[in-house]
Amino acid sequence: MDATNHNQNKSSSGIWGAAFAVMLAISGVLGFLLFQEKQETDKQSTEISIKARDLAITHSKLDSISRELDAKIAQVQQLGGNIEELQKLKVQLEADKAAVLKNKNVSVAKYEKKIKEYEAILTQKDEDIARLQEENGQLTNQNQQLSQENTTIKTDLDNTRRSYSDSVSTLRTNNKELEDKVTIGSALRAENVRVLAVNKRGKERSNDENEYKGRKTEKIKVAFTLAPNPLTKEEPKDILLRVVDPEGAVLSDTETGSGVFSFQGKDMQYTYKQSVRYSTNRPIVEMLYTRGQDYKKGKYNIELYAEGFKIGEGNFVVR
């Protein structure tokens, strides 16, 4: 009985030992699997973090290139270069930036290659910009040179115009002086001016002293000869007579044909006007003036004018 129980207890102990061994083995396997899964999870988490970091760096590089590209576009445009190619590149770059943010499974290596291509293009554009700056510098120098030449030409032209204007002005002055000389040269000249007294009966009296009695003088006759002048046109000429009394007043009466004329820029009164046909054969002119009242005593001066010139003078005395 005791032996039987002993054997039964021994058999039970073996079963429990075997079961424990199996459970221990299973636990070991499960622990190993759990450990392996944890390592795999940690590895994936690490890879995701690295990928996220790499994508962030890639996007940052693309963004930096985008800003640099904007600066290049502005420079090329300012220098007058063609920006069409750079604008297309800008569109492509913005699309790449958006793709990096949108898709987490993109290839970082692929975009690293693109970044190098973008950087190479920017480097090339630096060379193009340097070339444009040099060309613009040359154009600026040429423009400055042309501007200086234009200034010189304008100055020369202004000097030429001024010289021409001065020459024309001098020529006009000379012509005016010549015209004045010709005009002066063509002026009439009264010779042998004599004054005769005419009484109421029409009888003329004259003497070498040209002295007459006032009560016997109703009219005066001024006689003279027009000297020949080849520069003077043979045509009718208006002769103006001025009779100045002893007090310096001009005898004037519109009813007897008096009026006003211009002489040397001043308006002057004349006593009497008569039209005379001028010729070169020394015509004799007689101008008869009727005052209509007695002459007061004193010396009277006679002045003769024609075509803006004083052509002769004389005098007479009333006693």
Rank of each mutant, 00 (worst) to 15 (best):
N150D: 01
T152S: 12
T152E: 12
I153K: 14
D156G: 09
D156S: 15
D156W: 13
L157F: 03
L157G: 05
D158A: 07
T160Q: 09
T160D: 08
T160Y: 06
R161K: 12
R162S: 06
R162F: 00
S165E: 12
D166E: 04
S167F: 04
V168W: 05
V168D: 02
T173S: 06
N174S: 05
N174V: 01
N175T: 14
N175W: 12
N175Y: 14
K176A: 12
K176Y: 07
E177H: 04
E177C: 02
L178P: 03
E179S: 13
E179C: 09
V182Y: 09
T183E: 04
T183V: 05
I184H: 12
I184E: 10
I184Q: 10
G185R: 06
A187M: 11
A187D: 04
L188M: 10
R189V: 06
R189Q: 15
R189Y: 13
A190S: 00
A190W: 01
A190E: 02
A190F: 02
E191I: 07
E191R: 14
E191Q: 14
N192D: 14
N192F: 07
N192G: 13
V193R: 00
R194H: 04
R194Y: 02
R194T: 11
A197D: 07
A197F: 10
N199T: 08
N199G: 03
K200E: 09
K200V: 05
K200H: 04
G202K: 06
E204F: 04
R205E: 11
R205Y: 13
R205T: 14
R205P: 00
N207Q: 02
D208H: 09
D208P: 03
E209N: 11
N210R: 11
E211T: 15
Y212W: 00
G214E: 03
G214D: 03
R215D: 07
R215F: 02
T217R: 04
K219P: 02
V222M: 03
F224K: 05
T225V: 11
L226F: 01
L226V: 03
P228K: 14
P228L: 06
N229R: 08
N229T: 09
L231W: 10
L231K: 15
L231N: 15
T232Q: 12
T232K: 13
K233F: 06
K233E: 12
E234K: 06
E235M: 05
P236A: 08
I239S: 07
L240P: 00
L241H: 01
R242Q: 13
R242P: 00
R242K: 03
V244R: 15
D245F: 04
D245N: 15
G248R: 11
A249F: 13
V250D: 01
V250T: 12
L251P: 11
S252H: 13
S252Q: 10
D253R: 06
D253L: 05
